[in-house]
């Protein structure tokens, strides 16, 4: 492409007109924002808030089982839910949810048909997410949960 086919435009920096006090984004402001964030995340019980997503995930899994040869849509649904939970887990102090959700995302991304082993792996992830939520396994240091997550990650590496 020649340079005459490229145009450079300098847009008006509207946001600068509003964020015009450097104190708005200085370290003191960051500390204040971090405190507000911590207060908010502590006020949310992710285990109960995520229940509709878990039910949705279970229903999508049942849809995969019902039609394993053509399961792209429910698999995509599970991917989106797991991806969402992965982000929420990291923000709301459920690192195991982030880890297991991430493993499920890697496994199910683009899955259009599933054999029995693959369905079992999906089910194991869904069950593990539910167990972590129900047992409110917040933060680090859950030996059994960590072992389960490691086991699931190994399965995904071997089978995907």
């Amino acid at each position: 492409m020649s340079k005459k086919d490229v145009e450079i435009i300098h847009p008006t920096n509207t946001i600068k007109q509003y964020v015009n006090d450097p104190r708005a984004l200085n370290p003191a402001a960051v500390a204040k924002a971090e405190a507000a964030m911590a207060k908010f995340t502590a006020s949310i019980d992710l285990a109960s808030e995520a229940e509709p997503a878990l039910q949705d995930m279970q229903a999508a899994y049942q849809a995969m089982v019902a039609q394993p040869q053509d399961c792209a849509d429910p698999a995509k649904r599970i991917y989106n839910l797991a991806h969402d939970l992965r982000g929420l887990g990291a923000s709301f102090n459920y690192p195991l949810i982030t880890r297991i959700g991430g493993s499920l995302c890697r496994f199910i991304d683009g899955l259009g048909q599933a054999n029995e082993t693959q369905l079992e792996i999906v089910r194991a992830h869904v069950d593990a997410i539910r167990a972590v939520m129900h047992n409110q396994m917040k933060g680090e240091g859950h030996a059994i949960g960590t072992q389960i997550a490691e086991g699931l990650e190994t399965l995904v590496r071997e089978e995907r």
Binding site: V6, E7, H10, P11, N13, L25, V30, A33
Partner: peptide
């Protein structure tokens, strides 16, 4: 806040191809 600061202080020009 760092990303917002980056836009406020160093908004990149737009490229049209």
């Amino acid at each position: 806040l760092a990303r917002i600061n980056s836009i406020v202080t160093h908004r990149r020009p737009f490229i049209k191809t």
